[in-house]
Design a protein around this nucleic acid. Structure first.
Length: 516
DNA sequence: AACTACTTCAACCGCACGTAC
DNA sequence: CGTACGTGCGGTTGAAGTAGT
């Protein structure tokens, strides 16, 4: 789009904003708004070439430009600075944007840092356009092929664990100050990347939303903030297949104010206790919404903002209707398309669920969160027969996913495992730098979902997965039986057994919370 | 050709954060 | 500590472009 406006053809409002934005006056002149003229561009370019970037508010003083500093900065950053790429995004760039969005959410500036020559505004516009397109098409935001990427990424982290950590992983984990948010992003990442996991989570939510919950763990809820519920409520169209039950089960924003938390939460999602830093309420050990819900599995949560249940929703990945899935099942993979846009390709011909998954994915979706995490870990450990899931696999219908033999997990067992994770207090004796013994009580904050997410650590770091026959055993080892001993032998460099893992060698999310 | 609906994208807006005073 | 200021970020707006009828 090219503007051909002149200096006089746009509005020049005078609203006051502490004199800091473009609506202020400058020496009696009204600062100009609207599109920039080429003359203005030249002035700005000349100024920056002489004085460099920064101190934008000084531009108008030195150049006579009737533009505020913010406007100058924006113009320079988005259009005038050198090495800016113009034109459509390449396929590589598009794919990178999708990957980055899966990891970062709507953090356009960060995404732009990974795309040389591209601006946050460009990426944001592209994404919003893409969202609208996919929304219209009723399709998920992230192509299922990307599940390969997440596995590669997990492997990469595991391999680089002893080399100072994977920067991608660290960046991924340390976005913002609230690990819970990180987890939400992480979970989104995983669920979006792993089609079956995502589907199952979504289906699980459909079930939760549609049928309510009967399991005890679903009773420990907090009501989502109104904005979330409101958006969910308003997003009926985003949840085909669930919308009807959402309408029935999900209270309207008005109802939220008049309904008991338990009643509300039972219909929304499930949660586990989680330490949450909140700017207003401080650190709380309180239930936090687990983004197991349909909205949440694809609702990218801006990690920069605290998430005291403030789960911000965007678009769900599971937007396709049952009819669409039927088409998927019948269609071939990879999709046939001559469209240049790889995502349009996906829109046109969404791939079917992985072979052998359909029935169980759609019929046995009582679990969501842990199931998905296990799925990820399972895939990566597909070569190990004595896997974490052997007990479960022996008692539940087996489902092959990507030739790896991933199994469904009984919801009851999942419930019990989840319970065992909650409020686990451990005592650890170590030595300080001077050799004096230190004994501290900790809460191994494994209730933090991000800890759970660190399956790379669970299986690669501790080696627990390979040593035990079930997730329950593994977690028991992790939480109580062994760690609860007075002394833990933690050797760096070996990879078998619980005692082989240094606490400092854990992913950042696995840091423990020291009890007061 | 004219009209309408939709899409794109530059720019604006409000807010948050860091820093200097 | 409070205030002013500079800067950056993400969400939103609305004009121009485009496609469809």
């Amino acid at each position: 789009m090219s503007y051909t406006s002149t200096d006089s053809d746009h509005n020049e409002s005078l609203a006051d904003d502490n004199g800091r934005d473009c609506r202020s006056r400058w020496e009696g002149n009204v600062l100009k708004k609207g599109p920039w003229s080429s003359a203005e561009d030249d002035i700005l370019i000349d100024y920056v070439s002489k004085h460099g970037e920064g101190n934008w508010n000084a531009v108008q003083k030195h150049t006579g430009l009737f533009r505020c500093g913010k406007s100058c900065r924006l113009r320079w950053a988005n259009h005038l600075r050198p090495n800016l790429k113009k034109g459509a995004f390449s396929q590589e760039e598009e794919q990178l944007i999708v990957e980055l969005h899966a990891k970062l959410g709507n953090r356009w500036a960060r995404m732009a840092a990974h795309l040389p020559g591209r601006t946050d505004n460009e990426i944001k516009n592209y994404w919003n356009t893409r969202i609208k397109r996919r929304q219209r098409a009723g399709l998920p935001l992230y192509p299922p092929e990307m599940h390969v990427e997440v596995l590669d990424w997990s492997q990469e982290y595991a391999e680089s664990r002893n080399m100072g950590g994977d920067r991608r992983y660290q960046d991924f984990l340390q976005l913002g100050n609230c690990e819970t948010n990180v987890f939400f992003d992480s979970l989104n990442f995983v669920t979006d990347m792993v089609p079956c996991a995502s589907d199952r989570a979504d289906m699980a939510t459909c079930k939760i939303l549609g049928n309510g919950t009967s399991s005890p763990q679903y009773e420990n809820f907090v009501p989502p903030i109104t904005s979330s519920s409101k958006r969910l409520w308003e997003s009926e169209s985003l949840y085909p297949g669930c919308s009807s039950t959402i309408k029935e089960e999900f209270p309207s924003p008005e109802q939220f104010h008049n309904t008991s938390p338990q009643k509300i939460s039972k219909t929304c999602s499930f949660s586990v206790p989680c330490d949450v830093d909140h700017p207003l309420y401080g650190r709380q050990h309180s239930p936090v919404m687990i983004p197991d819900s349909h909205a949440l599995t694809d609702g990218i949560v801006p990690a920069s903002k605290p998430s005291f249940g403030a789960v911000k929703l965007e678009l769900p990945s599971f937007q396709y209707s049952e009819a669409t899935f039927d088409q998927w099942k019948k269609s071939s993979f990879p999709p046939q398309s001559g469209l240049p846009d790889p995502f349009d390709t996906y829109i046109q011909s969404p791939p079917p669920p992985t072979q052998g998954v359909e029935s169980d994915c759609f019929s046995n979706c009582d679990t969501g969160l842990l199931d998905m995490l296990l799925l990820e870990a399972k895939i990566r450990n597909s070569s190990t027969k004595n896997s974490l899931y052997s007990n479960w696999t022996s008692t539940t219908p087996s489902v092959d996913v990507a030739k790896s033999g991933v199994s469904q997990i009984k919801s009851e067992e999942f419930d019990e495992s989840l319970k065992s994770l909650v409020h686990s207090e451990i005592s650890i004796s170590t030595h300080n730098a001077d050799g004096y013994p230190l004994r501290q009580r900790h809460v191994l904050d494994i209730t933090r979902p991000d800890v759970l997410l660190a399956s790379s650590w669970l299986d690669h770091g501790l080696g627990i997965v390979k040593e035990t026959g079930s997730m329950s055993d593994a977690l028991a080892v992790l939480l109580g039986d062994d760690i609860g001993n007075d002394y833990m032998h933690m050797n760096v460099g070996t990879s078998s057994g619980v005692g082989s893992c240094s606490w400092s060698n854990m992913p950042p999310v696995c840091q423990m919370t020291e009890l007061p």
